[in-house]
Amino acid sequence: MSFLIDDDRPIFAQIAARIENDILEGILPEESQVPSTNQFAAYYKINPATAAKGVNLLVDQGILYKKRGIGMFVASGARAVLMETRKQQFYEQYVVTMVQEAKKLGITFPQLTEMIEKGATE
């Protein structure tokens, strides 16, 4: 995840992805406080409402929760949930496509596993 916002995707989605990544990488541990929407807005020079939309997306998914008058916090178990979602995404985005492409190129299953092992050791 980049530290900058690009124009390729909706800004709120990028804010949500940024928080998700920080949780996955342990930068934002569970039960720790997430930067406020105003901090996001000031840092990325975006409208606070847009930042709030990104944060609320994660609140709706139960990744973050709100402590009244204090701010947003990472929910316990958030990391496991995100990990699971990301694994599913990984399967759909990479594995399925990879297998399809391998079929097209006539790569057999043993050849494919061999390639993966090679890739993993490099």
Partner: peptide, 8 residues
């Protein structure tokens, strides 16, 4: 382009 991110 200059202001688009500031706008709600």
């Amino acid at each position: 382009d200059e202001v688009s991110r500031l706008l709600e």
